[in-house]
Amino acid sequence: MRAAAEPLLSVRGVETYYGNIIALRGVDLEVSRGEIVTMIGANGAGKSTLMMTICGDPKPRSGQILYDGTDITAMPTHEIMQLGIAQSPEGRRIFPRMTVMENLQMGASLVDPNHFEDDLKRVSELFPRLKERLHQRGGTLSGGEQQMLAIARALMGRPKLLLLDEPSLGLAPLIVKQIFETIRELNENEGLTVFLVEQNAFHALKLAHRGYVMVNGNITMSGTGAELLKREEVRAAYLEGGRH
């Protein structure tokens, strides 16, 4: 029996290396069902590495990752994703020689095809720009459009846990606002659990229920979004001058 309060995702003492270089130095964090959790940190802190480690590529050298009560630490990536995790990764990774439609179909690889039409309609409403470009090749989309597609593609997988690596990167402030609004709506209306990594600390922490700060492969601070926003260290390092 699983207690209802058990987190959907827990990362325990995870250490990840690239060759001999350590990137994560024993990371602990938890994401509960229905939460939006944000992680902020400087360039090279290890945020993307954590996102990818959760998805099994690279594998941690030590530590444990539990998702929905299952130990996924040693599972191959495609099996982890089958459990209901989707990621919009760093760099967007749109398939350049596939159309927008095909990219979305790839996102729905693990979903019952009967849902496709409805889900397509839903993401088209979220991102009307994509709807106009369904037959355009992914590689020819603008950076912002690619970012939208990456998020839409992740949503097509009907995830229980959505991982977003810098969803605001390269987007105009208005679009950023829209995307964050969308994330909030998905969270409130559908109970989607979201773990996102952001440079755009102000908006991200305002959006999140809780947040973590990562420095050099370590979690150095955690707390509610509002708490973190008030902390002097956070303001100095991630907010001053960076506020939109």
């Binding site: 998805c55 590529d57 994703m81 596939m98 790839m106 693990l110």
Partner: peptide, 21 residues
């Protein structure tokens, strides 16, 4: 066929979408 093309273009991403590469 789509999975094959996906692996061709970005194997890592294909795996992230649940494709058994």
């Amino acid at each position: 066929g789509r999975a094959q093309r996906a692996c061709e273009q970005d194997r890592k991403m294909a795996a992230l979408l649940g494709v058994n590469v």
